[in-house]
Design a protein around this nucleic acid. Structure first.
Lengths: 302, 302
DNA sequence: TATATTCCATTCATTAATGAATGGAATAGA
DNA sequence: TCTATTCCATTCATTAATGAATGGAATATA
């Protein structure tokens, strides 16, 4: 290739990865290649372009002024590449390839495994990647094809489907109740130990809506990590609030005041509009839309 | 690399090259790689994208409908890559690297060698590529950094510099004149044999402007290839018209009627605007702008 | 001060990509 | 009908790219 088309486009992508990650090692990890390889690719790009794109220092690589001038076009290539791949995905007709799903940690652990196992049996050509995450970051576009979210994503170009509302319930471990006694009334509930959340104010807002304003200090122990939250309640650290259908499957947990009106968690399925036309993603979407209401207990028993 | 950034960008370029060339072999030649390699790259891209980008048939590869949807984004990547490389070239500060020059065959052979040899001695860090071509295709953007043209390029973004006008002269070989006698008058000229051009009508137009309209058949022998044209006249095939300064350096050729008013050939230097700011290209440009008027005889003797 | 961590750069063995050579198919022209 | 040409696809040897391992430097921490 002659003239200005000499530069291998893959090298441009290497430049962009390093510019974004700030170091060879971090960029190499993100790209799934080795650090020496990426270093060589950056060096090759610099030789081909005739400029120093980065300054090397201990904590990584920093764009030179000349290098910074390349980032705009590199990003445009990236966006165009994304469009190309979306266009191709929209034309793929086989039920093959990878579908990446992101969902909360709780749902990833307690709802999706049996469903996805079944889906794999029904569609052996479709490979599934499950990314548990409680981050509310918008992962949808870059790292997942389908997202399960407890709020309605409002990003442009994203298609959403309401699965239902997940009922919540108060639960305590049998060991806790054996030690502290079972709350005799709703008022009594608030004399007990609770497990709370650290940075999230979800529980505080929920209790305020019940007419019970509390502060962070009300929760003697707090943790945002859902897995750890479950373990704390299971071990008798206090009363916790869970998605009722999931907690009812957990032995050793007792529901308190099942008829107490608690807020419900909405559950939405989301996918990028263009990707959703891809047969494999369409298949997974339809499967989840059909199966999740029952699996999450969002549908009243018939 | 996760998500939609999985596809090696170099494969996209391969797709584009084949889409534009219409066959693996032609695209491979244009890219300077082998046909099997390109075939593999296209196959790898098709596998990664999960669609058939091309239909193979005897005379090459034809875009499928799905493949055609990819060309827009691929072209956008190409444009962005070009912008990136222009940005980099504008930041290169060393007098190093390759400069590609295109000029007519005659000038490439008879004018530029001594000049470029000298430039190489003055600037050993600059590598030069010379592409002789009589094509009036716009090669400027893709295959050459600097072009010498006998017309003023009017493409947008191209900077031009007038070098001067090359005087033309009528010449014949001594052997021809020994055999046919020297033309006694201008009228006598037209009873002689002439070497003409095949597809180009330049000579016909020139003679018409002299009040001597002739048809193609007036030239008993015709060839568009400049090298062959020279050889034919040298071998005594007939009278030819040449750039006077170049022909005067050729032993064995005699100029006829030096005072006969003939059209003159304009000579222009052209470069892409953004590229011309690159130090090495700037250096070559300045050198040629300074040296070419004398070398081509476009400047009147002081 | 010693240890741990993270970074980039280099070496060497392994793997992947490439190109030369070849074959088969289709078409045009003598 | 035979030959020449151009195309894509395949095989095998060669070359280039890659990754594991390693080393040195800089910084933070016990």
């Amino acid at each position: 290739m002659n003239g200005i088309e000499e530069l291998d486009w893959s090298l441009i992508r290497a430049l962009l990865a390093v510019a974004e990650a700030g170091s060879l090692s971090a960029a190499a990890r993100a790209c799934g290649i080795s650090q020496p390889t990426l270093g060589r690719q950056v060096a090759a790009a610099e030789r081909a372009l005739g400029i120093a794109v980065f300054r090397r220092h201990r904590l990584g690589l920093e764009l030179t002024e000349a290098g910074a001038a390349l980032i705009g076009p590199a990003r445009e290539m990236q966006a165009a590449a994304a469009r190309l791949m979306l266009a191709a995905a929209g034309r793929a007709s086989r039920l093959e390839g990878t579908v990446r799903i992101t969902a909360s940690v709780a749902i990833s652990q307690r709802v999706l495994p049996p469903l996805l196992a079944r889906l794999r049996r029904e569609e052996p050509g479709i490979e599934l990647e499950l990314h548990p995450s409680d981050d509310s970051d918008n992962l949808l576009y870059r790292e997942a094809d389908i997202a399960l979210r407890m709020y309605r994503p409002e990003q442009l170009d994203v298609v959403t489907c309401a699965i239902g509302e997940i009922p919540l319930g108060l639960f305590a471990a049998e060991s806790y109740l054996a030690r502290r006694g079972r709350p005799a009334s709703v008022e009594d509930l608030f004399t007990h130990d609770w497990v709370g959340l650290d940075r999230s104010d979800m529980l505080i807002r929920g209790l305020r809506a019940m007419g019970r304003p509390v502060s962070r200090g009300f929760f003697g122990i707090r943790c945002d990590d859902q897995q750890v939250y479950w373990r704390l309640v299971e071990e008798g650290a206090g009363i916790g609030i869970f998605q009722r259908p999931l907690a009812r499957r957990q032995t050793g947990l007792v529901e308190l005041f099942p008829d107490l009106p608690l807020p419900r968690l909405p559950l939405w399925l989301a996918a990028h509009q263009a990707l959703r036309q891809t047969p494999r993603i369409r298949r997974v979407w339809d499967f989840l839309a059909a199966e999740l209401p029952d699996a999450c207990g969002t549908r009243a028993p018939a």
